[in-house]
Nucleic acid binder design. Structure first.
Lengths: 242, 242
DNA sequence: ACAATAGTGTCTATCAGACAATATGGC
DNA sequence: GCCATATTGTCTGATAGACACTATTGT
């Protein structure tokens, strides 16, 4: 059998669609998990930012391009994109044969300053809080992204506590109270402050200056100790799941 | 800006590469985790079975085609393929721009009767036991597949015990001893029979016949009770990770 | 009776969850 | 002193891990 040229076979368009996650007001009691949603026309509706994979570009390249052309920000610091799943139904795009490689990206709120689109709150059951529908399968992508994120923030069991804010939503240094509020915003449920402190402390180091422990500026009560992560924020290789 | 036809942009070839996992001698004390490896020429070396995604075919379609054309068996029962990761380095295939979507598939040994290739044992640290090199990045795929599989079989913590043989390597009905040997083969370490039994029993149901519990054929000692899974083997949706 | 395997009872160290007391600041 | 918040001490119920004992068969 003669070998046909590899390039002559029909090939799918490959899109990279992003669930950009952040925690707004991460330092405060109003911390909230949100996802970046954009409006588009033809067809009209709300979508996640995304883009076709261009020649010999990687997923990481394409994520950068999405930020540059669709979101309008140049992130200096991002958690590496995480592969969520593949959408490959042959008829999911009626214009052409296209498969979607859905990823999630976590960013601190400050890096999303001026981004195009809205930061929509995520409800406790993992979907958009304002219940507005999204086009195509994009709502599924949000659910998958939130589920994956929560697994990373959830309190597991005895042997391994969760890393403190593994996706780095909260800038250092921070108090245990602030850290707890971020975790609560992500997983959507309250945590006991004492148990939380006991589990996190082994993974935190107090900020020292001049041989003294640095405390937070006191508003009302006793000032809290400021901490840094002793394990740096998650640095998972690209395209793998945890 | 005029919109260029979507189909006129260059597109990558998309391959589906499979880590086919099985447990040989699943009913016995010699149970062993193995992966299907094939020989190829030009370039010469050992590879995992794989294939280009053809027009408007899905990943699931392509997995079927790999079994038909590359492996030479028609599986009647398979655990759905699991997405492991994406290989997208622009120069990973020097013939053309191609990205690889690596999946793992779990099958009972019986379904691999007459398959082309060798079932190579996996060592306890998750790589091939015979240490022969594989072409390209295929060794990484094996590691990722084994790691993902072990997560599913590993004993987690208090609230959720692992499902009994979630990928269905062991045909029903089985004894607790047989089930334990399969789990030990997968995770590569020994388990206490008493603790194992306690954790598994809530997820198992004894086989009844005529109001009586059916026992295994006794060779030497006391006959063991035969069980079935009360939760059917894992039915995860395609392309998602666990 | 004995060997061999299946199955159960129970002890212990650990720890998550819960509650409460104490420490340290502003006012 | 009083209030608010941070931090630490301690009790308790659950259970994984470990060990040892009992049960049921073939020989």
């Amino acid at each position: 059998m003669a070998r046909r040229n590899l390039d002559s076979y029909p090939r799918p368009g490959v899109t990279v669609d992003l669930a950009v996650l952040t925690v707004t007001d991460a330092g405060t009691d109003d911390a909230a998990l949100r996802v970046l949603v954009q409006e588009r026309t033809d067809p009209d509706g709300r979508v996640l930012p995304g883009r076709f994979l261009r020649e010999r570009h990687t997923v990481v390249d394409t994520v950068q391009e999405v930020f540059e052309h669709k979101v309008g920000v140049s992130p200096s610091e991002v958690t590496p994109p995480r592969l969520l799943r593949l959408f490959d139904a042959p008829d999911r795009d009626d214009r052409t044969w296209a498969i979607s490689v859905a990823h999630s990206v976590s960013m601190p709120e400050a890096e999303l300053e001026g981004a195009k689109g809205d930061l929509v709150a995520v409800s406790s059951d993992g979907v958009l809080a304002d219940r507005g529908p999204m086009l195509w399968d994009h709502e599924e992508i949000v659910s998958a992204a939130v589920e994956s994120l929560r697994e990373r923030y959830e309190f597991r069991y005895r042997n391994d506590s969760p890393p403190p804010d593994p996706d780095g939503f909260l800038p250092e240094p921070f108090t245990l109270h602030q850290l707890r509020k971020v975790h609560e915003a992500v997983i959507g449920e309250e945590l006991h402050k004492d148990n939380f402190a006991r589990r996190m402390k082994p993974q935190l180091t107090p900020v020292m200056r001049g041989g003294e422990v640095v405390k937070s500026a006191a508003h009302r009560g006793r000032p809290a100790t400021l901490y840094r992560r002793v394990t740096s924020p998650d640095s998972q290789p690209v395209n793998t799941l945890g």
